[in-house]
Amino acid sequence: MMEYFHKLYDEHEKAKVRFVGFVTETTRYDFGIVYTNQFFGKPLVVCMQTGRSTLLDSKDLADIEYIQSAFRIQDEQQASDLIEFFKTAIPHIPFEPQYE
């Protein structure tokens, strides 16, 4: 029953999607990256192995603890490896706050 819901948005968009799998010395990774205009232009990154997802931008890549938390990675080297990959896959978008 939709009468109990107040729709905030309902957008349709043709988005660019990239699927990438790669290995480091210790780990295999499989990600889906959805490049969209939604979410302030932050790509939606989905780990295809665990289903964990997050919105990432270039500023998020400076925070190793955020990457560890988002993908539940204990090992700092694994998180560093991911950050190095994401630096090539996540575009730099100047952030402009929507709310002040």
Score class of each variant (00 low, 15 high):
residue 34 V to N: 12
residue 55 L to N: 03
residue 44 L to E: 09
residue 85 F to M: 04
residue 75 D to C: 04
residue 83 I to F: 06
residue 35 Y to N: 06
residue 38 Q to S: 07
residue 73 I to T: 08
residue 84 E to L: 12
residue 49 Q to Y: 10
residue 29 Y to R: 15
residue 60 D to Q: 13
residue 70 A to T: 03
residue 35 Y to H: 07
residue 59 K to W: 15
residue 36 T to Y: 01
residue 27 T to S: 08
residue 72 R to A: 13
residue 74 Q to P: 02
residue 46 V to K: 14
residue 62 A to D: 13
residue 67 I to R: 13
residue 40 F to S: 11
residue 39 F to V: 06
residue 79 A to L: 11
residue 56 L to D: 05
residue 48 M to H: 04
residue 83 I to R: 09
residue 40 F to A: 08
residue 76 E to F: 12
residue 54 T to G: 05
residue 41 G to P: 00
residue 70 A to I: 08
residue 28 R to E: 05
residue 58 S to Y: 15
residue 38 Q to N: 04
residue 58 S to P: 06
residue 64 I to F: 05
residue 42 K to G: 07
residue 29 Y to I: 06
residue 30 D to S: 08
residue 69 S to A: 11
residue 81 D to K: 12
residue 25 E to T: 07
residue 73 I to V: 10
residue 78 Q to G: 01
residue 20 V to W: 07
residue 57 D to K: 15
residue 64 I to T: 08
residue 66 Y to A: 12
residue 55 L to A: 07
residue 81 D to C: 02
residue 61 L to Q: 11
residue 80 S to K: 15
residue 77 Q to M: 12
residue 75 D to G: 01
residue 29 Y to K: 15
residue 48 M to I: 07
residue 84 E to N: 07
residue 32 G to T: 14
residue 82 L to E: 00
residue 79 A to I: 14
residue 56 L to N: 10
residue 36 T to M: 09
residue 64 I to M: 10
residue 72 R to T: 13
residue 72 R to D: 10
residue 59 K to M: 13
residue 64 I to K: 14
residue 30 D to V: 06
residue 37 N to W: 01
residue 53 S to V: 05
residue 86 F to S: 00
residue 77 Q to T: 11
residue 58 S to L: 12
residue 71 F to Q: 08
residue 59 K to G: 05
residue 22 F to R: 06
residue 83 I to T: 02
residue 76 E to P: 05
residue 86 F to H: 00
residue 29 Y to C: 09
residue 41 G to V: 01
residue 71 F to G: 06
residue 42 K to D: 13
residue 55 L to E: 04
residue 63 D to Y: 13
residue 44 L to S: 12
residue 79 A to M: 11
residue 39 F to M: 09
residue 57 D to R: 15
residue 34 V to F: 10
residue 41 G to T: 02
residue 65 E to N: 10
residue 40 F to N: 09
residue 26 T to V: 07
residue 57 D to W: 15
residue 25 E to G: 03
residue 75 D to K: 15
residue 65 E to D: 04
residue 48 M to F: 02
residue 86 F to R: 02
residue 53 S to L: 14
residue 32 G to S: 14
residue 67 I to Y: 04
residue 51 G to V: 06
residue 29 Y to M: 10
residue 35 Y to L: 09
residue 32 G to M: 15
